[in-house]
Computed example of a mutant assay.
Amino acid sequence: MDISPNAIPDVVVRRLPIYARSLSYLAEEGVRSVSSQELGERIGVTAAQIRKDLSYFGEFGKQGIGYNVEYLLGHIRRILGLHEVWPVVLVGVGPLGQAIARYEGFRTRGIDIIGVFDNDSSKIGLQLGRNTVQPDSDLPKILQEHNIRLAIVAVPAVRAQEVVDVLVQNGVQGILNYAPIVVQTPDNVWVRHIDPVALLHSMTYYLSREDEHHAMNEH
């Protein structure tokens, strides 16, 4: 089934890796088939939502029988492009960047960090996992030589837009941004922003409301 990427709601695309991860766990447990209800309970979504999400890509299960775990996992992996290994560059090797560079979980899941870069001369030459930190000035050459389309940005906020501009100018189309700032990119570039502090603040909202509620009840 040939589907335009823009035809699928982004929220559905964001759920597909979660489906793949859960199906992978099921396969490791030796489970051969799973119902949409059982899969939904593991993920925290309704069975109807799973059926609707998967219907964008075809028919994968049978009423009353459920999904073949290996078959569905294989299809979702192909939909996500995980039948190949994606080379990625990482820009920024502060404490967060160093942790990302050393994380082996990327490579086992089809993401291969092939280059790590920073503009701090004291960090150039530092060995992080399988990579040696290179200067930012080498970034355009590496991006073009290896046809890199994915990048991780873990630089301070003041440098984020500058770095993203260099990435985009040299062919990068997907950026995972850890910098605490929303960067601007052309429409054909996909960006995912991860700000741990902002995510924690979205939870402190609920906790503070709960504290206020308890305080009011005590009076």
Rank of each mutant, 00 (worst) to 15 (best):
G105Q: 07
W86G: 06
Y103C: 13
G110A: 09
E70F: 08
S122W: 09
R51C: 09
S121Q: 13
I100E: 12
N119L: 08
I124P: 09
I114L: 10
H75W: 02
Q98Y: 02
V85D: 13
E104C: 01
R102L: 11
T108H: 12
D118Y: 07
Q49K: 14
V93Q: 14
I76V: 04
I50N: 01
R102W: 09
I113S: 01
L80T: 04
G105H: 09
I100V: 14
G125T: 10
P87D: 09
Y71S: 05
I79G: 01
V133H: 06
V89Y: 08
G92Q: 03
G115S: 10
G61K: 01
D120F: 05
Y67C: 00
L96T: 15
H75S: 12
R130V: 14
L128E: 06
G81T: 12
L80V: 05
I50L: 13
Q127R: 15
L54F: 01
Q63I: 14
G110Y: 02
K52R: 15
F57C: 10
V89S: 04
Q49V: 03
K62M: 11
K123F: 02
Q127L: 15
Q63V: 14
F106L: 10
G58H: 07
S122T: 15
S55G: 09
V85C: 04
I76M: 03
G105M: 03
I76E: 01
G129I: 03
A99T: 14
I79H: 00
L72G: 02
Y103E: 10
S121D: 11
G61S: 15
W86L: 10
W86Q: 15
H75I: 08
G125V: 14
T132S: 13
I79W: 08
R102Y: 12
D53A: 03
K123P: 12
R102S: 12
L82N: 08
R102G: 04
Y71G: 02
T108L: 10
R107I: 02
R77L: 08
R107M: 03
P87Q: 04
Q134E: 13
G115L: 06
N131P: 07
D53Q: 01
D120H: 12
R130D: 13
R130H: 13
Q127E: 15
V89T: 07
H83L: 12
I113L: 13
R78C: 08
V85E: 08
I79R: 00
L128T: 09
I114G: 08
G81E: 05
V91S: 10
E59D: 13
P87N: 06
G92E: 03
K123W: 05
V91K: 09
L80D: 06
I100G: 03
Y56N: 12
W86F: 05
G97A: 07
H83G: 10
P87E: 03
G74E: 00
H75K: 08
G94C: 05
R130Y: 09
G66A: 00
L96C: 10
F60V: 00
V89R: 02
D136Q: 13
P135D: 12
Q98K: 15
E104N: 13
K62C: 08
E84R: 06
A101Y: 05
L80P: 04
G94T: 05
V93M: 10
V133F: 12
S122C: 04
D118Q: 07
T132P: 02
H83S: 10
I114N: 11
V116T: 15
T132Y: 11
N119R: 15
R78Y: 02
V69A: 00
S121T: 11
S122F: 08
Q134N: 06
S137H: 05
G64I: 05
E59T: 11
G97K: 04
I114M: 07
